[in-house]
């Protein structure tokens, strides 16, 4: 059993599980949207004194913090007991492009060691990707009113036009970064 679930899961297992997660939350009277937890955390931290955007009844959102706490635990379980030794089977074109950009062994681990390490954080390249990138996530999701879970999954499931516009935005930003800016940042 452990061996069976320790294999990498194909897309047609992961996608339906994500949909199931959304439906479970709906059945319990909640909704699926992870980036709202960032707003809740700001509200708990007292940001409501500085902006009325954070001045709301955050206690009604505590369930979502419990939900992402579950994601942390899930990440721990999967990485600790269900780890597979095989590298990620990336497309050949992706591997070649990354090697050209100076990323060694693409897919051997989950994250490129050249970016995701404490040493890298103190380089210009690492700082831009981790700190500025993180800031864009927090700022952009709140401006757009949702992230992948809230817009791409929940919003599109509900056939909402605003979510489709947001997803188009996600791809404008993602394509701009991947094809134009990332090659420059990785050279730093």
């Amino acid at each position: 059993m452990i061996e069976f679930i320790s294999q990498p899961w194909p897309w047609y297992v992961a996608g339906p599980l994500i949909a199931l997660t959304m439906f479970l939350l709906l059945f319990f009277g909640k909704n699926f949207g992870v980036s709202s937890t960032l707003r809740t955390a700001c509200a708990i931290g007292g940001a409501g004194k500085l902006s009325d955007f954070f001045d709301y009844d955050w206690k009604s959102q505590v369930w979502n913090l419990v939900f992402v706490g579950g994601m942390v635990i899930g990440g721990f379980i999967a990485s600790t007991w269900l780890q597979q030794p095989d590298p990620i089977p990336l497309a050949q074109g992706t591997v070649e492009k990354l090697q050209e950009l100076g990323i060694s062994n693409p897919g051997e681990q989950y994250l490129p060691a050249e970016i995701f390490s404490w040493e890298s954080l103190f380089t210009l390249r690492g700082f831009i990707l981790l700190v500025v990138g993180g800031f864009f996530i927090g700022f952009g999701t709140r401006w757009a009113g949702g992230c992948t879970s809230g817009h791409a999954i929940s919003g599109l499931s509900n056939l909402q036009l605003p979510s489709l516009i947001a997803v188009v935005g996600f791809f404008i930003g993602g394509l701009l970064m991947t094809h134009l800016l990332l090659p420059l940042i990785l050279q730093l």
Binding site: V34, S35, T37, L38, V68, G69, M71, V72, G74, G75, A78, L111, I128, L129, L130, V132, G133, G134, F135, F136, I137, G138, F139, G140, T141, R142, W143, A144, G145, C147, T148, S149, H151, P162, S163, I165, A166, V167, V168, G169, F170, F171, I172, G173, G174, L175, L176, M177, T178, L181, L182, I185
Partner: peptide
Amino acid sequence: YLFGGTIFGLGWAMTGACPGPMYT
């Protein structure tokens, strides 16, 4: 949605993570 989404998209491609995977 378009501007906010674009900024999030930039961050998504930089960190390779949207908010859910960040916690994981």
